[in-house]
């Protein structure tokens, strides 16, 4: 019931990641945005901040909750998506288009799942 595009990789903590022009693009999955409900704000890191695989690099706020977002990779933040700061609703409406950060100088990754394996994770949590 959740959309999990085949071409992406996933974490057990509900982030997606894809490699694009040497950078790792990171966002929230359909399952995550649905569980969070209406997202009202995304706290993004700054360009140049180090991120570590498996550790929180951001948090997203709904009206009554705040949840950490974990990095699938270890590296340095190369770009942040300022557009979602102005329009956090886009994470709900288009979670695979509304990426959060792009990471450069990646030296390691979290255990990454393919779409099928990730679907099972979702099924178990639903």
């Amino acid at each position: 019931m959740f959309k999990n595009p085949e071409e992406l990789k996933y974490t057990k903590t509900h982030e997606w990641v894809k490699e694009e022009d040497g950078l790792y693009v990171v966002g929230l999955t359909d399952f995550a945005q649905d569980a969070l409900g209406d997202i009202v704000f995304v706290n993004l890191p700054s360009v140049g901040d180090p991120v570590t695989a498996g550790e929180a690099f951001s948090d997203v706020e709904s009206v009554k909750a705040v949840s950490d977002v974990f990095s699938p990779v270890t590296g340095v933040v190369a770009e942040v998506n300022e557009a979602i700061v102005d329009d956090p609703a886009s994470v709900n409406s288009d979670c695979y288009g509304s990426w959060l950060i792009k990471v450069a100088d990646v030296t390691g990754t979290e255990e990454l799942l393919d779409a099928k394996a990730y679907e099972e994770v979702c099924a178990n949590e639903a």
């Binding site: 209406d38 009202v40 704000f41 706020e61 009206v63 009554k64 956090p88 609703a89």
Partner: peptide
């Protein structure tokens, strides 16, 4: 009230 609108 629309809390989502207030926060967004």
């Amino acid at each position: 009230p629309d809390d989502v609108k207030a926060a967004r």
